[in-house]
Nucleic acid binder design. Structure first.
Lengths: 250, 250
DNA sequence: AAAAAATCAATCAAATTCAATCAATTTAAA
DNA sequence: TTTAAATTGATTGAATTTGATTGATTTTTT
């Protein structure tokens, strides 16, 4: 049996069974242990698999390691909690929109759903999504340097090509009168468009955003379900009059 | 059995069975090992198959692509030279397209022109462009993990919204007959579209790309000016019959 | 913690496969 | 026809791949 054929067999066995013993390879290929060991070494060097004592394993994308950016973020722990909860709302087969921003970024490591497609305008999100092998579409448009978000006419137009199951939006302010707000009107319009294109819309807002308001309006409270970690019953009750609120607890 | 017929038999056997042993070819063609070896060498040079110890294997175009990381270390010095020269072609006020790829990436540090706007489909390019405070538009679309390029229907459509002064395209092969080529048809179409949308088109090809050809055709030689560091006068003369060639010297 | 079992990397010699060469044959051109 | 060029199959020593063996390392069992 020739080298490429053996390699093919080895990789195929691994596809079927995440971890495979050396002797199983020997049986499948009818050649010596030495040869298999050499093959495994080569394939490992090519990053096609990972050798383990006794055989080889499928290498899965490395788990959630925190980037410098993530570490330096404010309220990181709360955002992780909210992100983790929000990601649990994604169901198999969903087509979702992830808004640019640090809160939605925190969702990505926790995404479990299979066969999903993600549309995003956040440059920072892309690496994290590809790392998890999630098919990712990026909206076109102008890049805003400060937030690494795609905005502008092109981005809006690009986004309108899609039809979405759910969208997850970060905001800067949530206020009973002014609704959901953010400082940049361009970004606000982008978020608004995503909400209108989605069957279900979720706004992610840690407790520091409540009762605040920024310059540009995104949408009314009732246009999206709010996910927060605020625990003040009285404050929450106020919002629950106007919209659905889901509270994440530590 | 005549040469073209033997070649046909060899390729057909490979189609049926991804990996074929030398002796199987000998039996199928009824000629000597030497002859088959010579045939395999020729066919390998024509990129029709890949020789392996003991026989030959079908080469899968897409799988053979090197990852971005692997590429980034290869011919880096030459790519910098070419990139530096190419960037000098950009003039104040230009609207340019930078194709994804390591060669065009090398252009960015050297860009001097003022008031330019850049459109790109390369994720890797974005950071570098923002770093230099160059207004950057990104085409929308599906991200191809391996090359970090944006491709697909969305990307094409997004790109067609723009009108470009110049485009700079990376290729995998330049060949007198097959023109400019690259392994992935989706990426080829993207590059092709950019060329058609631009007043002037430039192809960046270090000397390793000359006389090579990949699977998918991008354009004919005469559709773009070729920038290369190849110095073989005879070879260059051949291309200069069909297109404009600009040679960068160390 | 020590002993036993399994797995490993390193090495070697045998077998296979390879590229290079050459003479014989065929094909093409003068 | 004669000559030159190209193609072929055989032969050679060199290079590669292979399976077996060694002692070292790791894991499991006692």
């Amino acid at each position: 049996m020739l080298t490429p054929e053996r390699h093919r067999v080895i990789l195929q066995l691994l596809q079927e069974k995440e971890v495979v013993k050396l002797h199983e390879f020997v049986e499948a290929t009818q050649c010596s242990e030495s040869t298999i060991r050499r093959d495994l070494s080569q394939l490992e060097k090519q990053k096609k698999l990972k050798r383990v004592h006794g055989g080889a394993a499928l290498l899965q994308q490395k788990r959630e390691e925190l980037s410098v950016f993530e570490k330096s973020t404010k309220n990181i722990h709360e955002k992780q909690l909210i992100g983790k909860y929000a990601s649990s709302l994604i169901q198999d087969g969903d087509c979702i929109y992830l808004d640019a921003g640090t809160t939605t970024l925190q969702m990505i490591p926790y995404i479990q759903a299979k066969n999903i497609v993600v549309v995003t305008n956040g440059m920072m999100h892309i690496d994290a999504l590809l790392e998890k092998d999630i098919p990712t579409y990026v909206v076109g448009g102008l890049i805003k340097k400060k937030t690494n978000a795609l905005i502008g006419r092109g981005a809006i137009h690009s986004l309108q090509q899609y039809s979405l199951d759910k969208c997850f939006i970060g905001v800067n302010g949530v206020h009973i009168d002014s609704g959901y707000t953010t400082p940049d009107p361009e970004e606000a319009f982008m978020k608004q468009t995503a909400i209108h294109l989605s069957r279900q819309a979720f706004v992610l807002a840690d407790h520091s955003k409540l009762n605040e308001s920024a310059f540009a309006k995104i949408a009314e409270l009732q246009e999206a379900t709010m996910i927060t970690n605020e625990t003040d019953e009285e404050l929450l009750a106020m919002y629950e009059v106007k919209t659905t609120v889901e509270v994440v607890k530590a």
